[in-house]
């Protein structure tokens, strides 16, 4: 970057003693080239807003076209999904059920394990050990999700099949349980890492107070540190939920390929994301009902994610404690 603005005459002066945040500068003294760059930086900053508008706009535009042909009530209450079949059915509930079941299984793994690991790392583990365990744990979340999908389909599900075989149950090669379990494992590092940050931010004096009352470390964990960090921990849980809702590759590889209106995790089923990924392979004719349906499904997913995020934000505000 050239620096044509280096002459002392045009250099702006910071007037007076600056506040800790910003120096006040007379706009007219800022050379034009600098203002151009400044404007460029502003555009970059605003690009995020533009992207959001584009995402929502694209989804809503195509979904509106879809809902012009399919009544929204049928979409939300129908129990059979197959917009590309003849006769077509347009009930999104099977996909929502699949999404909720896999998410629930994942959370049943990720929330307890993540919380316990976080408590252990923050309260029990020696500093040295924590400094090395946490990064390795974070590596787990760096593994591409499609590899987790492979792991679910060809490692975890066969093990589950053997185990269910012992009790005489024949588990299918695709099921939501296996996909959900692996998804849970994938999410553990997020929950653990964020919760641990929140727990470590709890002031030491609170713990010392608990110890002074004769509490054990475990009691301090459960009755002092956990409630005090609840706001941050909730944020971690919310992130876990939105990760699980939006996860695609694991479920598309391992959970099965047919919409299935069931709450039984031992069955195969398709999720919202898996439907989009398995149908949208770039060969749906533009403007067809099938093409628009994937945007309607995408919008449903976005609304669900948003719902959990807003709910989570509200919960966090409720449990927020200032120290």
């Amino acid at each position: 970057m050239a620096e044509p603005i280096a002459q002392p005459a045009s250099a702006p002066q910071a007037s007076g003693v600056s506040t800790p945040v910003r120096a006040r500068i007379d706009r007219r003294s800022v050379p034009i080239s600098e203002r151009v760059i400044e404007f460029g930086l502003f555009l970059a900053g605003a690009s995020g807003v533009l992207v959001t508008v584009l995402i929502v706009g694209t989804l809503v535009y195509e979904a509106v076209g879809y809902f012009r042909e399919v009544p929204i009530l049928d979409f939300l209450t129908g129990t059979s999904w197959g917009p590309q079949f003849v006769p077509a059915s347009h009930g999104v509930l099977p996909l929502i059920a699949g999404t909720l079941v896999t998410t629930l299984v994942a959370l049943l793994v990720a929330v307890p394990v993540g919380t316990i690991v976080a408590l252990w790392l923050s309260e029990y583990a020696p500093t040295k050990l924590r400094e090395s365990v946490k990064p390795v744990l974070e590596l787990l979340s760096a593994v591409p999700t499609v590899v987790f999908g492979y792991f679910a389909l060809l490692f975890v599900i066969p093990i589950l099949q053997t185990m269910f075989g012992w009790v005489g149950y024949e588990l299918g090669g695709f099921n939501m349980l296996g996909a959900g379990l692996v998804m849970g494992i994938m999410i553990v590092p997020y929950v653990a890492s964020l919760s641990e940050d929140a727990m470590r931010a709890v002031p030491k004096s609170l713990r010392e107070g608990a110890y002074a009352m004769g509490a054990t470390k475990f009691q301090t964990c459960v009755q002092v540190v956990f409630p005090a960090a609840l706001s941050g921990i909730t944020a971690a849980y919310i992130l876990a939920v939105s990760r699980a809702l939006g996860e695609t590759m694991i479920v598309v590889v391992a959970a099965g390929g047919q919409p299935n209106f069931t709450m039984d995790p031992l069955q195969q089923a398709q999720t919202l994301t898996a439907y989009i990924a398995s149908v949208a392979k770039g060969d749906l004719p533009v403007g067809s009902i099938g093409y628009r349906a994937i945007f309607a499904v995408g919008l449903t997913l976005l609304v669900m994610t948003l719902f959990f995020n807003v709910g989570g934000h509200w919960l966090r505000q409720r449990y927020k404690e200032a120290y």
Binding site: G48, T52, I55, L59, Y61, G246, E247, I276, A280
Partner: peptide, 25 residues
């Protein structure tokens, strides 16, 4: 404030939604 909230929310948008945006747009 809008930009900041927006960036925080963008990070939480499921990746497949980005694919849909790219497909349509």
């Amino acid at each position: 404030t809008i930009i900041e909230i927006n960036i925080a929310n963008l990070a939480g948008v499921p990746s497949i939604i980005w694919g849909l945006m790219a497909l349509g747009l």
